[in-house]
Design a protein around this nucleic acid. Structure first.
Lengths: 379, 379
DNA sequence: CGATCTTCCTAACACGTTTCAATCGGGCGG
DNA sequence: CCGCCCGATTGAAACGTGTTAGGAAGATCG
């Protein structure tokens, strides 16, 4: 509308092309027009408890009482003070409050990767519990980078948050181990605590691997691929161990598990694994694959379809996590479901207990995963 | 291992079954054993600058200088102080620092829905810019709930964060409008600012809708479904407007756009829409669908395959957002790509400018979307 | 009129930051 | 060897803002 060439849809410019509209609201404006919601002063720094007291004609302590112990203030006085706060646009300075009170009403969840729907669901569970306890949750993303993780831990410590939930990149991190000793409760999520000092909530990944591969064996598969990596991730190791155990239980030799290692648990890696897998000579090619993660499984699935391998006829696939997209794949994916939201809720509850209950005893809570069978293995 | 019945994989218990291991690390432990990383005192409250000064045998001011202006302290003294901080496990109290300094090094991104990969990518862009400016980002999720959004805005104000990026549930929220006046810069992400007072970064959704439908028209489709909702979302309205405009441009009558309204932009809603769509009599059934969102498109796609409708032969599908799962679908999805990460980066840059540059002028930056054609429309 | 509340105010406090004059330890020109 | 200059360091004090204990003032009641 404002720039004719922009209305054309032929994109000959680089995709980062952009337009700017209404470039200059004059800066003077902020101080110029009438107060939008009362006679708010638009002075430099925000008004403090002091200004409110002056405006309401009461003392400073009374204003504080209105904020923290409203019942000890007479309704008339309270109303006066509240009106003054409204008019001045008073916002309590949390730094000052916290400095004096020593406590904060904030929890933090430091997670590996916000773009993995799994962690988003865990966070939702955490928030449910926090809301009920009148706490707020800040989410922090380490992006699987140990340095970022360390930076955030320092920051949270400096902020004196009420507690930290963490899915660690580096469970042995010294900061993580010393955190509890400095008075900040910590709960490990989806990973058993590195040391013994702390609570953890996790899901039995060995059992999950067993469930997946037992299911495949029961459907008649005798040569099964395990796709995942890197080996440094506990989750990957445990799920593979479970797979091996299931094979052994079925009386199959260990070499019937064909291990394809990936460098990350992503869709792209899953696609790459598909090419390696389908390139194997027919005699050695597995008839089923167990992926350490749904993202890998979805990549594998996509590439199989693209290369003309039928799922599950030519290759049955089992994923892990049962993210929403698993059921929505064109060939719905059999997957191992984890109680994601419950994981978050339980972790938050443990954290609250650690923070509030002096007789708190550290615990490791482990949940039982569940196999959800869909078309990718049932044909 | 510890509980025999847990080793069995027959899940007869409810899926929330759990085990607890090592229930009691004796609480006395925290005060009992040796300091794990030096002679750290395990007293009640964390040591302050005062204790550090005493331990290092220097004055209080010198410790502060080590923290804030290391260059004015001689290397020897500095080393002494740093050693003392290490030993005591000193952590600067950010509340006190901020109270005095008045400024915080934290940005917040208040987003609609953390489980939507779109927002996770925007957040990643924000973090890139923040990292470079030595700021940290806290993520907050409103979960599309206006009350939660309001609570978080209050909290962030009280924390005196350096700035707030927000994809609002309720763009007209009074709190949002008064935030800037109270000294906290705000940038609207993926939504043009409600009022004029503030920066915003968005993508031209009308153009995106035009691109999608123009592509379909060029491929010969003359009856096209628009699937999305609720109508209250700006994004949905704009994308539909674009669709209508493209039809008009092609000289097709407006009733060639068959609108199916959903109650949310989710996979489940997409599935539901598929049944409605395929249930239409052949004469009125569209040969192509433009979905307001990739989640809806993926649901539609899944159900089509399931009901035996070939994509794109029986129904061509275009999504919106180009999330990673779009390319990974078994029939790769044509979609309208938004520069998600750039959106975040630009928003963060505007925020920094608003915070640091006194001559800052509010801007509305709008990006141009791009169509990515894949098999779901190309056959 | 004294006892008892109720309501409100005063002042100390939490802790790191910053300022400023004062002090200290050398090195250096004389 | 003396006095001076310089950088490093110190001690004291003010500050930012809200919290809270303890006491004063005012109101109510018997």
């Amino acid at each position: 509308m404002d720039e004719p060439q922009a209305a054309s849809s032929t994109a000959d410019d680089p995709p980062t092309r952009q337009r700017r509209r209404r470039p200059a609201v004059p800066p003077a404006r902020a101080a110029a027009d009438g107060p939008p919601a009362g006679g708010r002063a638009v002075t430099g720094r925000p008004p403090g408890i002091k200004e409110v007291a002056a405006a309401a004609g009461v003392s400073l302590g009374t204003v504080s009482n209105v904020l923290n112990r409203p019942h000890v203030v007479s309704p008339r006085t309270r109303a006066k003070v509240e009106r003054a706060m409204e008019q001045l646009g008073f916002v309590r300075n949390e730094s000052a409050r916290q400095l004096r009170a020593g406590s904060s009403r904030i929890l933090a969840y430091l997670m590996l990767d916000p773009s993995n729907p799994f962690f988003a669901d865990v966070a939702t569970g955490i928030e449910e519990v926090a809301d009920a306890a009148d706490l707020s949750v800040f989410l922090c993303s380490s992006g699987e980078d140990a340095a970022r993780e360390a930076r955030y831990l320092d920051l949270l410590l400096e902020q004196r948050v009420a507690g930290v939930l963490v899915t660690p990149v580096d469970a042995g991190n010294e900061r993580l181990r010393t955190l509890p000793a400095r008075g900040t409760p910590v709960v490990f999520v989806d990973r058993t605590a590195g040391a013994d000092d702390g609570c953890s909530v996790s899901v039995d990944d060995v059992l999950g691997g067993e469930l997946a591969v037992t299911h495949l064996v029961e459907r008649g598969h005798e040569r099964i691929a395990f796709i995942g990596g890197p080996e440094t991730l506990n989750q990957v190791r445990d799920r593979r161990t479970g797979a091996e155990r299931a094979l052994a239980r079925a009386g199959l030799p260990p070499d019937r598990l064909v291990v394809l290692t990936t460098s990350a648990l992503t869709v792209a890696e899953g696609r790459g694994a598909a090419e390696r897998l389908l390139g194997l000579p027919a005699a050695r090619r597995p008839t089923a694959a167990f992926c350490a993660n749904d993202l890998v499984a979805l990549g594998l699935l996509q590439m199989c379809v693209q290369l003309g391998a039928a799922v599950p006829e030519d290759l049955a696939i089992v994923g892990y996590d049962d993210i929403d997209f698993a059921a929505a794949a064109a060939v719905p994916l059999t997957s191992v479901r984890q109680p994601r939201r419950l994981l978050g809720r339980t972790a938050a509850e443990l954290l609250l207990d650690e923070a509030n209950n002096p007789g708190h005893a550290h615990q490791h809570v482990q949940f039982i995963p569940e196999l959800v069978a869909r078309r990718s293995t049932l044909g």
